[in-house]
Amino acid sequence: MLGNKKDLLGLKDISAEDIKSILHNAETMKYILSQKNKKTPHLQGRSVVTLFYENSTRTRLSFELASKYMSANSANIAASGSSVAKGETLIDTAKTIDAMGTDILIMRHSMSGAPHLIAPLVKASVINAGDGMNEHPTQALLDIFTIREKKGRIEGLKVAIVGDIYHSRVARSNIYGLTKLGAEVCVGGPSTLIPEGMEQMGVKVFKSVHEALIDADVVMALRIQLERQKKGLFPSVREYSRFFGVDEKRLKFAKPDALVMHPGPVNRGVEFSSSVVDGDQSVINEQVTNGVAVRMAVMYLLSRRGQVNENSN
């Protein structure tokens, strides 16, 4: 249980203890995933609905498989081809889904705060699968899980997050989660893509990628959306990759055993060179596996709300 919380909207408003309890539970889930028979009864009889207002392949599939492995009834709603296209408000859509007996509602929306608007209005547990530029908590949890699995700890590590910080909900959730667990977070990227007031979040801001990478234990690059170039945030993809991309040479600023991470999908040759993506330090594919485990853990813990804690005296 997450302190009897109903929803997971972000890492900014949960405690380090809650994060640790999700990570701990995800270890068990990962063990289950390694079995031939992955079916468990954790969510038997429960209904899980994914409501995605933005395109997604991996996050959506990850949640769907996670719920199916735990025997939940799952359904998916995409923004197009539904009442959404007919002009129904988000609140009405969410209440309708809730009224059908949904236990867990997984939401992705292009506008920051959308799940925060819905959560108090529905009985279902709401899991934020990404809201605008605000948060993507399960992505950060799987990143943190992966780091902890490889490095054995989070506290005292130096994590460099590079690229488009401004538009990144992944960066924000990672910053909240990692700093709560005692990591040092450094961000770097073009100054047009670093939002104001970052230092007040407890991170160090660098104007160049290589400075952010110095002695890092983890190098996490963020996806750059190529249409940002048209908005004048950087001059060209070519220039971006030259000054802000991470290739083998630039990666040497980090520690030799630094992990290479990316939330995907990667623009090869832009954020990372292909040799870095496919190199020995890359844990990008393991992040995907861990994503399923972490999402199983989150759904399971939220579903246990209101039940007696067997560990209590």
Partner: peptide, 13 residues
């Protein structure tokens, strides 16, 4: 407003 709060909330400033 653009500043720490817009960054914190993930809203365009």
């Amino acid at each position: 407003n653009e500043g720490y709060m817009s960054t914190y909330l993930g809203l365009r400033g």
